[in-house]
Amino acid sequence: MPSDARAPLGLKLAAFGGLAFLLAPIALIFLYAFSTEEKSFQWPPPGFTLKWIGVTLERTDLWEALVLSLKVAAISTALALVLGTLTAAAVARSRFFGRETISLLVILPIALPGIITGISLRSAFSLLDIPFSTWTIVLGHATFCIVIVYNNAVARFRRTSGALIDAAMDLGADGLQTFRLVVLPNIATALLAGGMLAFALSFDEVIVTTFTAGNQATLPIWMLEELVRPRQRPVTNVVAMAVVLVTVLPILAAYYLTRDGEHTAGADR
């Protein structure tokens, strides 16, 4: 509903005020990462320094948490890519008994509060005597990452004409060639975008993880402990800044990928 009219002043103030409310706290993170103050959250910062970045880089516990987080996010994303794409293909391309149930099932882990997913997985692990490991974390993460990949893939499958698959087979491509030469290139950007979002979500997840990690620490778990019992504020400040950068950059990339995909995949319809 774009309009060429000028916005009323009150609306403008409210809108930009709201935007400032949304962005200011994040900007604050970047400032505090360079503060010289180490015992409190003093504002304005008494001075600025780069030394905490160096201190943070030398912390082995942080590196271990980071490696675990990356490992979990990578495996969960890979699993979610396979499961989400297969499900999206079935739901978008055909009608079958239970189709509605499956599309509901996929969004359930994200629709229900994370604490419910977390506690039910934990009690299932303890009922079945499954010890905590990287794989228990992955199980929880992949469960809610599937929906992210699924949503991206299902939208792309719906936009991509089914006649393309017919055309490929008509021209002599067998099932595998059709997948490799036509299906995959057409959904690739959607999968990349979905994969990035899933990765970011997994990398950041804390609620389900507190139930499925046992005494392993992912980066968010490390942060949570710092939040509950602050011990090393300057290091936490730097980690917070790094986490913002790591999660936001893939999001921006994913946005540009799906935006471009809109005219390539829909061109023939």
């Binding site: 004409s161 017919d166 087979m169 008509d170 099932g175 290139p185 061109a267 023939d268 319809r269």
Partner: peptide, 20 residues
């Protein structure tokens, strides 16, 4: 017999040209 084994080719209604 699946489509790819038939020596028959189609011009589709919406052309179905591969966009990529």
């Amino acid at each position: 017999v699946p489509p790819y084994r038939r020596n028959v080719n189609t011009v589709f209604q919406s052309y179905a040209l591969f966009p990529h």
